[in-house]
């Protein structure tokens, strides 16, 4: 018994470890021909909705990608509700009422997910402002040096292109000592 679970564990561990990309099992059997709706508009809405709904019994798949029985039931249910005239929002609300927010692959925006939704843009804004502030602080008090003349620019380009020379060091840079 212990051995069996060890072996099973190892097989699964393998799937996980190696599986940078194999976490989802082969999903070729996901949407079945008999599920497909005749109305292409409804069908494409159903497909789009399915991609937003998590298969609850699977690892990390949408019901559109999964061949699990429950995923199939949910796909059929989504199509039935669409045929009955539900809007996309109503279909999602129907499932959220039964399975909670967990069923949505796109979490709703609410206080507990503010950090998730606005975090990336907040990081971008704060870091951007920080860089902007730092660059202003570092700007020399005197007027910036006049742009290089064309001849100077060419010379510099040549130097940089050649790049045999190590980069120049600003004169203000003091000698550095190793810490030890």
């Amino acid at each position: 018994m212990r051995n069996a679970s060890l072996v099973l564990g190892l097989v699964l561990a393998t799937a996980l470890t190696l599986g940078a990309f194999i976490a989802p099992p082969p999903a070729a059997l996901a949407v079945q021909p008999d599920e497909v709706l005749a109305d292409p508009m409804l069908e494409s809405r159903a497909r789009a909705l399915s991609k937003h709904l998590r298969c609850l019994v699977c690892q990390n798949q949408s019901i559109d990608d999964s061949d699990a029985g429950l995923a199939r039931d949910l796909r059929v249910l989504v199509r039935e509700r669409l045929k009955a005239g539900d809007s996309d929002e109503e279909v999602l609300a129907f499932l959220v009422a039964r399975y909670g927010d967990f069923v949505l692959l796109k979490p709703p925006v609410k206080p507990t997910t503010w950090l998730l939704w606005f975090g990336p843009f907040a990081i971008f804004a704060v870091a951007g402002l920080g860089i902007w502030a730092a660059s202003r602080r570092k700007r020399p008090a005197t007027a910036p040096a006049a742009p290089l003349s064309a001849a100077e620019q060419e010379k510099l380009d040549a130097l940089l292109a050649q790049d045999e020379h190590p980069p120049s060091r600003p004169p203000s840079d003091p000698p550095q000592r190793p810490a030890s």
């Binding site: 019994v57 029985g69 429950l70 039931d73 949910l74 249910l77 399975y99 909670g100």
Partner: peptide, 13 residues
């Protein structure tokens, strides 16, 4: 039989 009541109750296993 078809698992529809299960969905109604949020059953997933």
């Amino acid at each position: 039989r078809n698992g529809r009541a299960g969905i109604e109750w949020g059953v997933y296993g």
